[in-house]
């Protein structure tokens, strides 16, 4: 198929899916709402019963779409950085690092009776992400092979998760409920105040990533070629690391750990578009991450309603097989 028509078709498909899932997220739930009711509620009219439900679902839908997109783009940035398709914020332990600092902040502040604001939560997650990223980069200086580095990342992730569990275990009873729900991961309970932080951060992060598409494409050829083509490698590396941390920290701060989206979405998109060109991949990954998370969130809250599944479990169920498929197909194509 001609590349142009393939791309147009793929983008069209993704947009349709996104719109359909957004609509479904608003309509489907323990209380069934008619389209007319939803539209009325969105306009601020309609009956008093529908309005709060629609408000709740709209927040959740926006969070899932934005954060899912952020995760996928963050994953793509890390994969470009490490020249390895298995890299992602969850795999490298970056999400777990953010989780640890967020848990620490929550427990520390809540025990002093301070309610944690969105910005503080985000700041903590960002710091945690950067810390783990720093450790990974230090290791990268010593460990040349990326597969080894990924194993190190997984180990760091375990250490951070264990530390988080410890904190949760010894936290005051009152905090535990909050922390438990958060540390399992969920798009529920996201407030408009949270969204006011999420939306600009994700929008800016994704837009900046898109603007880095050109140097990223040069970087895909390797360091020497990128430098020869005029990429300022040091600055570029910093930008990649900062951006991927900015994006993945946003997810961890507000939705907790969401696994596999960062690895699965870019792979799906590379297969769908049959290219790794960053100019296409950044927007495609964003759309795919949004679709993926919206779908998973819909399943998480409807499959066993009224019991809600942790979003991380659902994304893992769908994401992990994709990652395995990716590894197998890469092996078949003869490049690992």
């Amino acid at each position: 198929m001609e590349r142009k028509s393939r791309c147009a078709l793929a983008f069209g498909l993704l947009t349709l899916l996104l719109l359909a899932l957004m609509a479904a997220s608003l309509a489907v739930g323990s209380v069934a709402l008619a389209p007319a009711e939803i539209l009325a509620a969105l306009r601020g009219a309609g009956n008093s019963l529908a309005a709060p439900i629609v408000d709740l679902r709209a927040r959740r839908m926006l969070a899932a779409a934005l954060l899912g997109g952020a995760l996928a783009v963050s994953g793509f940035l890390l994969q470009t950085f490490f020249a390895n398709p298995i890299a992602g914020p969850f795999v490298l332990g970056v999400s777990s690092g953010a989780k640890l600092t967020v848990a620490l902040t929550m427990v520390f502040l809540l025990s002093r009776g301070v309610l944690v604001g969105s910005a503080a939560l985000y700041g903590a997650a960002f710091l945690g992400s950067l810390l783990v990223m720093g450790v990974i980069l230090l290791l990268a200086g010593r460990v040349r092979q990326t597969p080894l580095l990924v194993v190190c990342g997984v180990m760091i992730g375990y250490v951070c998760s264990a530390a988080t569990d410890l904190i949760v275990t010894f936290a005051d009873d009152a905090n535990i409920v909050n922390l438990r729900a958060w540390s399992l991961g969920s798009f529920s309970g996201i407030s408009w105040a949270n969204l006011r932080v999420i939306a600009p951060v994700v929008a800016a992060g994704a837009a900046w990533s898109f603007l880095l598409a050109k140097p990223m494409s040069a970087f895909q050829l390797g360091e020497a070629y990128a430098r020869n083509l005029g990429v300022d490698l040091k600055a570029f590396r910093w930008k990649l690391i900062l951006l991927s941390s900015v994006l993945s920290a946003c997810v961890t701060a507000f939705a907790g750990p969401v696994s596999f989206v960062g690895v699965a979405a870019p792979h799906l998109m590379r297969s769908l578009f049959k290219t790794a060109k960053p100019l296409l991949m950044v927007p495609a990954c964003f759309l795919c991450g949004a679709v993926f998370c919206l779908g998973c969130d819909l399943l998480a809250r409807t499959l066993f309603a009224p019991t809600e599944l942790a979003i991380g479990s659902v994304t893992a169920v769908f994401g992990a097989p994709i990652v395995i498929w990716m590894l197998l197909s890469r092996k078949r194509r003869g490049s690992v």
């Binding site: 040069a218 895909q220 050829l221 390797g222 070629y225 290219t275 790794a276 060109k277 490049s335």
Partner: peptide
């Protein structure tokens, strides 16, 4: 140096020469 990125066509690779 070997190029490790998957899913790049020959044309994509050559096109990067136009980067500057």
């Amino acid at each position: 140096e070997r190029v490790r990125t998957d899913r790049l066509s020959v044309r994509d690779v050559v096109s990067l020469g136009r980067y500057p």
